[in-house]
Design a protein around this nucleic acid. Sequence first.
DNA 1: AGCAATCAGGACTTCTGCGGTCCGATTACA
DNA 2: TGTAATCGGACCGCAGAAGTCCTGATTGCT
Lengths: 157, 157
Amino acid sequence: MLRLSKLTDYAVVVLIRLSHGEAVQTSPGIAAGIGLPEPTVAKVLKALAYSGLVSSQRGARGGYRLARALSAIPITDVVAAIDGPIALTACVEGSGAGCEAECTCPVRGRWDLVNDAVRQALARITLADMDRSAPRAHARAAAQQPDALALTLISAE
Amino acid sequence: MLRLSKLTDYAVVVLIRLSHGEAVQTSPGIAAGIGLPEPTVAKVLKALAYSGLVSSQRGARGGYRLARALSAIPITDVVAAIDGPIALTACVEGSGAGCEAECTCPVRGRWDLVNDAVRQALARITLADMDRSAPRAHARAAAQQPDALALTLISAE
DNA sequence: AGCAATCAGGACTTCTGCGGTCCGATTACA
DNA sequence: TGTAATCGGACCGCAGAAGTCCTGATTGCT
Ligand code: SF4
Ligand code: SF4
């Protein structure tokens, strides 16, 4: 159904939750705040910390803290942190495993266009746009960006 | 890894293969032409026929035939035919199953923005753009379309 | 220094749904 | 009318995701 993993969904929720209230929040605290199982939230936070989206503080009175502002985190970063790089099919650049029918496939390599289109669509939306309790400042800025997808299509071959 | 199902990938390959050579082609014939297991190709063709992307002809001398031109089939149609409607998360409109944390979630409903962005990115690319042996006529046309994503973001709320 | 709280990392189990396979229904052709 | 070719839908196994748990390392507080 072309759905992204549940963990990625949770990551967005967790990050937005982190932007509310206290600056540094603990893993069980966040889990309780959004009514999600604590171990799962912890797993998400670890992945986010590993990729540098949040900074962690160990020990008593520790917790997690946002590393950047919400408006500086595009959706692609969250997806990349949890699910790894965006690779719609096996033959796009970056996905190690190759397709077995790669030699005879008449579409070999063409998926890169679609892949980039999706990547750019996701890169234009930041977490600030996802927050229900924030103004829509960023959206207007996005409207002034050129249509990068079309440029990609034209430049291709 | 935000990847779409293998079947969808195969569907694109099959459709493009169908646009080459004979107008009506049989399921094993196509499978042999692209070196993919025959039952799998047959399954893909069935799904495509069910959703009207190809028309089927039963009986001897039967087979499958393209229902429309490649340039009239956006990627979204292929995805919808195989994987069902595009629904990145559980809480987007159209996905029957709801999320359990839906009442307390601070992102509830915001995924629609991302969902539409991806959908529109995929809708702008047709199978004709994926064919390696075809001219890139459509790409230039896409460049002249307005940036629908930004408009969506602005109009939201 | 001792203690309690918290994160880090990995191993393990469960389960959905994708990928692959099969046999019966249908239709043109001789 | 018989036959062969082909589509249609139902079936099952398995990889990968989702979720859980445990042990060890680190740090603030008393
Ligand atoms: S080579 Fe062809 S069949 Fe293989 S992943 Fe790429 S598009 Fe799909
Ligand atoms: S309601 Fe929140 S947690 Fe549930 S699917 Fe939607 S965004 Fe994700």
